[in-house]
């Protein structure tokens, strides 16, 4: 199990291989469908985003409300492919890490390689457990989006797996191939 601190450095990213189990500690921002659409539309118009994503790691999540006494409600990953339309643009703007679940398309994987970035998979459905590693959250922007608003998460030993490494190796392809019976 590798321990990584956020923000990610180029050297850290170089040492990650698809399939590695890692624990993330540090800060990441959140964003899913609606926030990505807004980011993308601003980027297309050449306008700056409400948060500087250079060097950032983004977590595709829309948490459930926090019960009293909890830092955050259950907060597992959402399906990443819905962000595929927007991710290459954000990666080209300097985004370094993405955390979600499920396979990405070729354009995203190419953009990961081109920008020396990484895509992590968190365990879909392990939302209550994952929330234990999120210690604090604060608003960043788009509060009108409710659960889809962009927040900053302060995480400690957040468990995930390297899904696509900077060389473009894809655990979703490799894993299924290894266990497929024809």
């Amino acid at each position: 199990m590798k321990k990584l601190t956020l923000p990610l450095t180029d050297e850290q990213i170089s040492n990650l291989k698809a399939g590695d189990s890692v624990l993330l500690t540090g800060e990441m921002i959140t964003g899913r469908d609606a926030a990505h659409k807004r980011f993308f539309e601003l980027a297309q118009k050449g306008e700056s985003l409400p948060v500087d994503i250079k060097g950032e790691t983004i977590y595709y999540v829309g948490p459930a409300p926090a019960k009293e006494g909890y830092a955050v409600g259950p907060a597992g990953p959402t399906s990443s492919y819905r962000m595929d339309k927007y991710a290459p643009t954000l990666l080209d703007m300097g985004l370094k890490g993405m955390v979600g679940k499920g396979a990405r398309n070729k354009e995203v994987i190419d953009a990961i390689v081109r920008n020396h970035a990484v895509y992590f998979a968190a365990i879909g459905g392990a939302a209550a457990l994952i929330a234990k590693s999120i210690k604090k959250t604060e608003p960043v922007c788009y509060e009108d989006l409710g659960t889809e608003s962009v927040r900053r998460y302060f995480v400690e030993d957040f468990p995930c797996i390297v899904a696509v490494d900077a060389e473009g190796n894809d655990v979703y392809e490799l894993g299924a191939k290894k266990y497929r019976i024809d």
Binding site: A64, P74, A75, G76, G125, A128
Partner: peptide, 18 residues
């Protein structure tokens, strides 16, 4: 992790998935 997650959700009465 899924088993642990589901046991945790039941014990704390929080949603097992967001």
């Amino acid at each position: 992790q899924l088993i642990e997650n589901d046991e945790l959700a039941a014990a704390e009465q929080i949603p097992l998935c967001q």
